[in-house]
Simulated scan of single mutants.
Amino acid sequence: MTNNRFFSRTAWLASSVLILIFGSSSHAIAETEGPNGEKAVPYTNISLTAKQQAEAREKNLKAAILMHSTSDWSNALIAGAKDTFSKLNIEIVAVTDAEFNANKQKTDVETALVRKPDIIISLVVDPVSGAAAFRPAIEQGTKLVLISNLPSGFEHGKDYAGIVTDDLFQMGRIAADLIAEAVDGSGNVGFIHHEADYYVTNQRDQATLSNLKRFYPDINVVAKRGIANAHDGEVIASAMITQNPNLKAIYAPWDSIAEGVVAATRAAGRKDIKVITMDLGAANALDMAKNRNVSGIVTDLPYELGETLARMGTLAKLGEYTPPFVTVGASAVTRDNLISAWENALKRPAPKSVYRALSK
């Protein structure tokens, strides 16, 4: 997944804050809190009773899914939402892609509102303009459920039913563990971080670094570079490798950047440099299956995220309480569990090329 689902933290585009509390134990306690300090509720806690499901089916509700971009991740989320709505007899009246453009998202909202949806699921591209763009939906009585991003000035229960996002600290901790596994617990590594005010990537990167420092003191981050354009991954990684020939691994903040890092390792003839990244993608999965450079990937659960969003919207429309902040977990992907992890996260078969590579 590219940075298209990420957003600026400067105006609380972020929907969560990482809190590190160091107690008397040797381990850090990590919590992901909501924008107003809300305690995260596990997505598994969000469900409808049989009575609520029956009530929803009788209402013939309508829903719109207004996405910020298109990707494997977005497609899996949409599938989860669609499947849940279908079981509840809720008609999908619109599925849109804003192409990470706030103006287009405003148009998408206006177009969707013509169909009078009872529920809208969306990741708001810009918190300021998005607050104005979605205001007519709220005034129309539509229940808004947010993916990760909180529009400026919105109040829980009044303007939106809740936020659903990833457990960002967990993702960073898993990434640190995968880096440590790739280098056998010690050695020099390169670290590419997202050099922009995008909260999700910033916090995942920072959580990875903090966990490396705390739990793996024998791993040295000897090269650290920021990246703003995902297409620059190969150039940045090539410079890292040239300047630090003793690198054992490189971390990339998401999958398309990792593809560039892999290209750099191949160009340098460095099959020994391992690549660790966030988010499943076909190219990196194939590289992992071929036992080349990609050794570890952190994935979340976009399908379950979609299911949760749909349930939250339905509950809100039924007049039930919905928590302000809900998180979905993450897991580690290695060559050993690649197929099961892919299918568990994206709820579809892995590419045939991956199957073939694993069978060799």
Results as ranks from 00 to 15, higher is better:
residue 2 T to Q: 03
residue 5 R to V: 11
residue 6 F to L: 11
residue 9 R to D: 13
residue 19 I to G: 14
residue 20 L to Q: 10
residue 21 I to W: 13
residue 27 H to G: 05
residue 31 E to K: 15
residue 35 P to N: 03
residue 38 E to F: 10
residue 47 S to K: 13
residue 49 T to Y: 02
residue 51 K to I: 11
residue 57 R to Q: 08
residue 58 E to A: 15
residue 58 E to G: 13
residue 60 N to L: 13
residue 61 L to E: 08
residue 65 I to L: 14
residue 70 T to C: 08
residue 70 T to Q: 14
residue 73 W to I: 11
residue 81 A to Y: 01
residue 86 S to Q: 03
residue 93 V to T: 11
residue 98 A to N: 12
residue 100 F to A: 02
residue 100 F to N: 06
residue 104 K to S: 04
residue 106 K to H: 08
residue 107 T to I: 06
residue 111 T to A: 15
residue 112 A to F: 00
residue 117 P to A: 07
residue 117 P to F: 07
residue 119 I to D: 03
residue 124 V to C: 08
residue 128 V to L: 11
residue 132 A to I: 02
residue 139 E to Y: 12
residue 143 K to M: 05
residue 151 P to R: 06
residue 157 G to C: 06
residue 160 Y to F: 15
residue 160 Y to L: 04
residue 161 A to R: 08
residue 161 A to E: 00
residue 162 G to N: 02
residue 164 V to G: 00
residue 165 T to V: 14
residue 167 D to I: 09
residue 167 D to H: 10
residue 171 M to L: 13
residue 179 I to D: 07
residue 181 E to P: 09
residue 182 A to F: 01
residue 183 V to G: 04
residue 184 D to P: 01
residue 194 H to I: 12
residue 196 A to L: 14
residue 196 A to I: 07
residue 199 Y to N: 08
residue 200 V to Q: 11
residue 200 V to G: 15
residue 201 T to K: 09
residue 204 R to F: 09
residue 205 D to E: 02
residue 212 L to N: 09
residue 217 P to K: 02
residue 217 P to Q: 00
residue 218 D to N: 13
residue 218 D to M: 06
residue 224 K to T: 13
residue 227 I to W: 01
residue 234 E to K: 15
residue 236 I to Y: 05
residue 236 I to G: 05
residue 238 S to T: 09
residue 239 A to R: 11
residue 244 N to R: 15
residue 245 P to N: 14
residue 248 K to N: 06
residue 251 Y to V: 12
residue 251 Y to E: 06
residue 258 A to H: 04
residue 262 V to T: 01
residue 262 V to W: 10
residue 262 V to E: 00
residue 265 T to L: 10
residue 271 K to Y: 07
residue 272 D to R: 15
residue 275 V to H: 07
residue 276 I to M: 04
residue 281 G to R: 01
residue 283 A to I: 11
residue 286 L to S: 01
residue 287 D to P: 03
residue 291 N to Q: 15
residue 293 N to T: 06
residue 297 I to Y: 01
residue 309 L to T: 00
residue 310 A to F: 03
residue 311 R to Q: 05
residue 315 L to S: 00
residue 317 K to Q: 13
residue 319 G to F: 15
residue 321 Y to T: 13
residue 321 Y to C: 06
residue 326 V to D: 01
residue 334 T to S: 10
residue 340 S to Y: 02
residue 340 S to V: 05
residue 340 S to N: 04
residue 347 K to Q: 14
residue 347 K to W: 08
residue 347 K to V: 14
residue 348 R to L: 12
residue 353 S to D: 13
residue 356 R to F: 10
